[in-house]
C-alpha cells in the first residue's frame, strides 16, 4: 500500500470516527426535536411504528405558546439572566482585577468555593430572608440568587485575562496622568473585551439553565423557563409532546448562542486549563 492510499484511509477513518461520535453526542437532542413534533399517541406507542412514521405536528409548539404562557416565561428568563450577568460584571470585574493585580491568591479561593457550595444549603435561609425583606415573588430575589451562579464564572474567567495584560501598559497610562482607577477603566477593561464576552456568555448560559434556585424563589409572575417545564407533568398525565417542545424552546436560544459564539464559549469553559 502506498503512503498516499494509507493517508487517504487514515483520513477516511478519522472522519468516520469523528462524525460517529458527533452523532452519538447529538442523538438525545435530535430525539428531543423529533418527539416535540410527534403526537402524544405516537410517542407512548413507540413499538407500533417506525422511527419516522408519524404524523408530524406543530400542535405541541402552538400549545406551549397559547395554552401555556411561554412568552412570559422566556421574558422572565431573559430579564433575570441579563440583569444578573450585568450586575455580576459590575461587582465581579473590579474584584477579578484586584485579585489579578495584587496577587490575592487567598481571595480567589473564596471565589472558587462559592462555585462549589451545594445549592440546597441556601434555599430555606434565602426564602425567609427575601420574604422578610418583602422581595418575595420579585425579580430582585431571583436576580440576586442567579448572581451567585454568574459571579464565580466571571471572576474565575477574568482573573487570567487581567493577569495577561502587561503591567507596563497601565504604568505608562498612570504616568500620562490617569490614576489607577483610570488605568483599570481605560486600559484593563478595554484590552479584555473578548474575555468579558466569554465570561458573560457562560454566566448567561448557567443562569438561564438554573433550576434549583428558581424553583423555590419564583412566584406567579417570575416563573423562568426551566421551572415551567414541570407544567407538563401533572397529577394525572405526562404530556410528553408538550414537555419535549418546551425542552426544545428552552434549549434553542442556548444552541444558537453556542453555534454563533462557540469560540468564546470554548475559551470560557477551558479557562484555567490553558494559561492566558
Amino acid at each position: 500500500m502506498s503512503k498516499k492510499t494509507k493517508d487517504i484511509l487514515k483520513s477516511v477513518g478519522t472522519h468516520v470516527l469523528i462524525y460517529a461520535v458527533l452523532l452519538i453526542t447529538l442523538f438525545p437532542i435530535l430525539w428531543m426535536v423529533l418527539a416535540s413534533i410527534e403526537p402524544q399517541q405516537s410517542i407512548i406507542n413507540q413499538n407500533a411504528h417506525g422511527l419516522l412514521e408519524f404524523d408530524a405536528t406543530l400542535r405541541n409548539y402552538i400549545s406551549i405558546f397559547t395554552e401555556y404562557d411561554f412568552l412570559k416565561y422566556t421574558k422572565n428568563s431573559l430579564i433575570v439572566a441579563f440583569i444578573a450577568v450585568a450586575l455580576s460584571l459590575v461587582i465581579g470585574l473590579p474584584c477579578a482585577y484586584a485579585i489579578a493585580r495584587f496577587k490575592m491568591r487567598k481571595s480567589s479561593v473564596i471565589v472558587l468555593l462559592v462555585r462549589m457550595i451545594p445549592g440546597i444549603s441556601f434555599l430555606l435561609p434565602w426564602f425567609s430572608i427575601f420574604s422578610q425583606l418583602g422581595l418575595r415573588n420579585t425579580y430582585t430575589a431571583l436576580i440576586l440568587s442567579h448572581m451567585l451562579v454568574a459571579l464565580p464564572y466571571i471572576v474565575w474567567i477574568m482573573i487570567p485575562n487581567f493577569e495577561s495584560i502587561p503591567v507596563d501598559l497601565e504604568e505608562a497610562a498612570c504616568i500620562d496622568g490617569t490614576n489607577r482607577y483610570g488605568a483599570f477603566f481605560r486600559i484593563a477593561l478595554r484590552l479584555t473585551t473578548p474575555g468579558m464576552i466569554t465570561a458573560s456568555l457562560l454566566a448567561f448560559i448557567f443562569s438561564w439553565n438554573n433550576f434549583m434556585f428558581s424553583i423555590v424563589l419564583t412566584g406567579r409572575n417570575t416563573v423562568t423557563l426551566p421551572v415551567a417545564i414541570y407544567d407538563f407533568v401533572s397529577y394525572a398525565y405526562v404530556d410528553w409532546g408538550g414537555l419535549m417542545a418546551a425542552s426544545c424552546a428552552i434549549t434553542l436560544p442556548i444552541v444558537v448562542l453556542a453555534l454563533l459564539l462557540q469560540k468564546y464559549i470554548i475559551s470560557g469553559l477551558t479557562a484555567g486549563a490553558v494559561k492566558g
Binding site: 425567609s128 424553583i215 421551572v227
Partner: peptide, 20 residues
C-alpha cells in the same frame, strides 16, 4: 392563583409555610 405539579407543590408549600 399559582399552579404547581405535585412534587414542586410540596417543595413550595414546605418552604413558604416553614418560613412563616
Amino acid at each position: 392563583y399559582e399552579v404547581y405539579p405535585e412534587g414542586q407543590l410540596s417543595d413550595k408549600l414546605n418552604v413558604e409555610l416553614g418560613s412563616g
